[in-house]
Amino acid sequence: MPPAPDSRSDDEVLAATDVTVLLRYGLTQDAFRTALFGDGAVAGAVTLDRLGVLPRSLVFVAEIVRAGGLAYAAELPEPLPDPEPAAVLRDWLTEAARTATSPEAEALAARWLKAVAELIALRRTTPTPQNPGELPD
């Protein structure tokens, strides 16, 4: 019998999620919207939280998307203060701008960014259980 595969935490699984693909389809097709705002938002939060992004920075970018559009936000020289998370976010914004051509899709993208920011804030304020099956008090 082959050995059991190494177990991975939910964080590791979600960090490997292709957020770009979820944005591509979730902003333009109703069938993928739940995945975008579910696993996609959590994956985005895990990824950006690991890179140290502050929720307020992401909310600011969401407001830029709402006011100026995805293409404008994607072309910002520094959408986030640090280069590594800025590059990740720029990739997401660029793909979203390429596929989300309606005002409704751009508004959804702004909502998604705010959802990701909320999840980052929750990750930072909710204690992590010591044992995976244990819930915090």
Rank of each mutant, 00 (worst) to 15 (best):
F32C: 02
G52T: 05
R50F: 03
L27S: 09
D18A: 10
T47A: 11
V59R: 13
V61H: 02
D30F: 07
R33K: 15
R56T: 13
A73C: 14
L76R: 12
A74W: 06
G68L: 05
V61Q: 04
E84L: 11
P77W: 08
G69P: 00
A41M: 07
P83L: 11
P79Y: 01
L36K: 12
P81Q: 01
F32S: 10
G68A: 11
A41P: 00
E12I: 01
D82Y: 01
D18T: 01
R33L: 11
L58H: 07
R24E: 13
P79V: 12
E63Q: 13
D18H: 13
L48Q: 14
L22H: 14
L58A: 00
L51C: 05
A15F: 11
L36R: 09
F32Y: 15
R33Y: 08
L54V: 09
L36H: 12
D49Q: 04
G68V: 01
D49E: 07
A16C: 01
G44H: 10
R50C: 05
Y72N: 08
E12F: 07
E12R: 06
D18I: 00
Y25F: 09
P55H: 02
P77Q: 02
L23D: 09
D18G: 06
V61T: 02
E84I: 13
A71H: 11
L14S: 10
R66A: 15
F60H: 15
Y25E: 14
A15Q: 05
G69V: 03
Y25P: 03
E84V: 15
F37N: 08
L23I: 09
G44C: 08
G52R: 04
F37K: 01
E78I: 00
A45G: 04
A62V: 00
R50Y: 03
V42D: 15
P79I: 05
F32D: 06
T47I: 05
R50H: 07
A71G: 11
G38D: 07
P81W: 05
T17N: 01
V13E: 11
F32A: 10
D82F: 12
D39M: 06
V65N: 10
T34M: 04
L80N: 01
L70G: 06
G44N: 03
A35K: 11
D82A: 13
G44W: 03
V21H: 14
R56C: 01
I64E: 13
F37P: 00
E12N: 06
G68E: 14
L76K: 00
V65M: 08
L48P: 03
